[in-house]
Amino acid sequence: MKMNVRRNTGVDYILLIPFFLLVFVAIFPLFWMLVTSFKTPEEFSAIPLTVFPVNWFKGNYIKIFTDRYFPRYFLNSVVMASVVTVVAVASSTFVGYIFAKFKFPGKNIFFYAILITIMVPFESFIVPLFGFVRNMNAMNSYWGLIFPSVISSFGIFFIRQNMEQIPDALLEAAKIDGAGNYYTFFKIVVPLSISAISVLSILLFLIEWSSYLWPLLIATKREWFVLEIGLTLLQDEYFIDYGVMMAGCAVAMIPVFILFLFFRRHIMDGIAMTGIKG
């Protein structure tokens, strides 16, 4: 029977052509970014076009790293994305746990109140949120960049779904042995949910690393810009120096690529599983 399943016809092989065309489309911009980042302004504007740089010009990267603000943008992005991830994951883990494993008055009301905010797009309430942060004098500060993202209603929901799988008997046994709530949480619940927690961490980091609109509103001084804003400023001259800009893009992608290299399965399965991102 198995023999019948795998009978490839010519059509199957022809379909590989559009398949690899799409693979090419997926990879070409990244490839072109890399080669352009090693080209001098004269070279990327030259006709005929060169694919690989004649001399691998490192000036663009030197310019990026010695730029007065670029390293600061990078630092801001790292701080913003890391703090948001740590705080949002920690809070989601605690809150997901109490919703999964405890009974208390008003539980459903609280849960649905949190759940309904998943549906509300962030963009629809940025105006009052911005007013709030401005009134707190939190413009141009890490506090202002980070504060609106430290909770994740999706994260709470996701963690709760996972922790409901933990058998109650296990937690009961720990309690009978005299373990306190925090002990049970850190020694039993967290280790059992570690894969959900790491999927959530990676997703939240990726989302926060790419956030653009909120930092655009909150940072009005250059030293508070994040990478996503800083990159667009590299085009703010009469002539776009694509070499420098692409070097900036390449540097901005390094953390993401490191994550992808080490956690490829987590990221791909996680994203397919959860159906969020964005």
Partner: peptide, 27 residues
Amino acid sequence: QAVLFIPVIVSMVPSTLMWKMLFDYNF
């Protein structure tokens, strides 16, 4: 499959800038 997945994780600003370069009028 992993290669095809890479664009998903690239942030929106660099993605847009790369395509902006590819669609540049002169270069």
